[in-house]
Amino acid sequence: MPSLDAVRLTQDLIRRPSVTPADAGAMDVLQAELARLGFSCRRMRFGEIENLYARYGDARPNLCFAGHTDVVPVGDTAAWSRDAFAGDIVDEILIGRGAVDMKSALAAFAAAASAAIARGEVKGSLSFLITGDEEGVATHGTKMVVEALAAEGEAIDHCVVGEPTSAETFGDMIKIGRRGSINAQITVEGRQGHVAYPHRAANPVPVLVRILARLDAHVLDEGYTGFQPSNLEITTVDVGNAATNVIPAAASARVNIRFNPAHTGAKLAAWIEDVAQAEAAGFPGTVTVTPAISGEAFLTEPGDFTDVVAAAVRDVAGRDPELSTTGGTSDARFIRALCPVVELGLVGKTMHAVDERAPVAEIRDLQAVYERLIARYFERFGG
């Protein structure tokens, strides 16, 4: 069986403009390669989102690779030096939307799996959990696949997510945890009136200002082992009042909290509600808090699995990666319900940017790291 070329496969994937929620054939490209390698492939469509679960072997342990084929929009096409979906290589740099986040990682792990299978190193199972809904609202992607697999009793022992985790230099960082995230919409409804007759109105703006000031002044924590302090940010304040002589009927704001394991989303939602109602005491109107928890904080404790991943990086990159919990959320927040999970990928500086790009040499290095990871994993955990 001919070997799988990670760079060529990355180009093929980039040439499918799979901007969330569109698939544009990207999942078909990856599935065809995995099927050729002997993976049993299962498409799992929820809503308009294409998902794929593919498995090679039926024994344990089952090492899973998770990732996404969807990408963010290109933005200003004129600002790109090359067509964002052409997959051009210029001076040994691959340019295109998804080059870093994260079609290269999909291709690199597929190529690594191909090599491991050819060498007879898979002493258990390899699997792929791929979604087309990571860059969007993430309601019909990995979350639902994980729920379906759990309900079926599918056993996944450990998982590697191919997000671009390296910070400055390839292999300098892997992610072993992430902070949680909660958004909250706060709406204060009062009574509209003339500014010259405030007694006839109920101004919602001062109430909202008090709520936001109290939320913003509160120190959530001083940090948590392995995590930076939690932070609350006011992301928008909206009144929609174009007149200078009208007290508005309503005012709203949104806040976001990125939180470490010292908190849960539910407890933070309750705290926001309590603050809002306390600051609105005596106000002849209503205050509504609508929270949305997009993920809880989690940590994969350093141990045998993280040692295997770090050693694979050291084998290829010659450095010990930092075990980090920084950054935003990823689909690891859903997979952690099934098994321990870490994230390992390319340098993320150009993800979501104009001329997103990855050096060809680093894509091949990533494949080499994944190959060493697979080999070391089954040496450590295989039967």
Rank of each mutant, 00 (worst) to 15 (best):
G295M: 06
R8E: 15
T329L: 11
V308L: 08
Q11T: 10
G190F: 11
L94E: 03
E121G: 04
A292K: 12
L232D: 10
M44R: 12
L212A: 11
M144E: 10
V29I: 14
G47W: 01
V74M: 01
S294A: 11
N62V: 14
A79H: 10
F381N: 05
P198K: 12
T187P: 04
A332V: 02
Q277H: 15
R97Y: 05
D274T: 15
P261V: 13
S18V: 09
E154D: 05
H194C: 07
A107P: 07
R380L: 05
A266E: 14
P302M: 09
L215V: 06
D28L: 10
S127Y: 08
V239N: 08
V347T: 10
A278I: 03
P261Q: 03
A262S: 14
A150Q: 15
L52G: 04
N231D: 08
T69M: 13
A113C: 14
A358F: 02
A317T: 08
A337T: 07
A150G: 12
V188F: 09
R210K: 15
G57W: 11
A112T: 08
R45E: 04
D320A: 14
A66I: 03
V72L: 10
F170I: 13
E233M: 11
R43D: 03
S3A: 15
R364C: 06
C41G: 06
A242Q: 14
P248L: 09
N241Q: 12
A375T: 12
E33T: 14
S81L: 10
G141C: 04
P73R: 09
D5E: 05
L215G: 05
L126M: 08
A243W: 09
F85D: 01
E371Q: 13
P248Q: 06
L4Q: 04
P164A: 07
E135N: 02
I247L: 14
I93N: 13
G132E: 00
L13N: 02
L344A: 11
P206R: 04
L323R: 15
A368F: 01
G327A: 02
R364I: 02
F305Q: 04
S166F: 03
T20S: 01
Q277S: 15
D238G: 01
D5W: 09
L4T: 11
